[in-house]
């Protein structure tokens, strides 16, 4: 272990005893190759067993460990101390109610994910014995990027629209809807449009692009939303110009 001591200022809140959240500072002796999560685990194991936070995989894939680190939404298991100063402020993800310490309430996000019908609505029915649906690598690559979302909700913490209007469906859910809409096997676009193309959906997005900047897997929800807007406009005009198309 190196001699580096890092001061972690962690926002603490226990709804059973605290009126409001407040910072508590811990001094942690850190190894060079540690991530912020390692330092937090050190606190939990050695200094204060009451600290609450979520984590599991420690490899940036389960999506549990999102936190505000020096004001930026990040995965704490992928935030290397070598890239950070000696004083680090750690807070729960903004735009979410705090459940306790660094744990936020996920209900709204889970509902939104559900609302966009994020499952394949197949073009044709086929039994398993009839084999797979064909899909070329080119067709796959159209939507592949949008399958990579780990539901870490960093994009909701970064999104200025979601901050103002919690009704906004939000980046990850809209990107996921787009993922299915683009899938050559799927015909669910109109079924998803109720939510996706509603006032709380894509049109709410003002294209700041903060979501894409903080995404740890390069999903680019902003692009998904932009593309959906274009596709929805096309739908809209087509419906207008071809009377009786949508009855």
């Amino acid at each position: 272990m190196s001699n580096r001591i890092v001061e972690l200022e962690i926002l603490r809140y226990n709804p059973e005893t605290d009126e409001e959240p407040k910072f508590q500072t811990f001094s942690v002796p850190c190894a060079e190759d540690w991530v912020v999560l390692d330092a937090i685990n050190y606190i939990k194991d050695e200094l204060d067993r009451t600290l609450s936070y979520r984590w599991s995989c420690h490899m940036a894939v389960c999506g549990s460990c999102g936190m505000m680190i020096n004001g930026e939404p990040m995965l704490s298991c992928k935030s290397f101390l070598r890239d950070l100063p000696d004083r680090i402020r750690v807070e729960p993800l903004t735009n979410f109610p705090i459940e306790r310490d660094l744990v936020v309430v996920m209900d709204d996000f889970m509902d939104k994910l559900d609302s966009v019908k994020p499952f394949l609505i197949p073009r044709e029915e086929k039994t398993v014995d009839e084999g797979e649906f064909l899909q070329t690598p080119a067709q796959l690559s159209k939507f592949k990027q949008y399958t990579l979302c780990i539901n870490c909700t960093l994009c909701y913490a970064a999104c200025p629209q979601y901050a103002h209007n919690e009704g906004f469906v939000g980046p990850a859910a809209l990107a996921l809807a787009h993922r299915y809409n683009l899938d050559s096997r799927d015909v669910g676009r109109s079924a998803r449009a109720d939510v996706v193309a509603s006032n709380a959906g894509i049109w709410e997005c003002s294209f700041v692009g903060a979501c894409s900047e903080v995404c740890p897997h390069g999903v680019d929800p902003a692009a998904a939303i932009q593309q959906t807007k274009i596709a929805s406009s096309v739908d809209y005009f087509r419906d207008m110009l071809i009377p009786g198309r949508r009855s």
Binding site: V128, E132, L134, P137, L140, F143
Partner: peptide, 20 residues
């Protein structure tokens, strides 16, 4: 059968050029 079922549910399996 199970892996094909996953395909029917949308799992983005990697593909050969012919789509299989």
């Amino acid at each position: 059968k199970e892996l094909t079922q996953m395909e029917h549910w949308g799992c983005p399996w990697s593909r050969k050029p012919d789509g299989h």
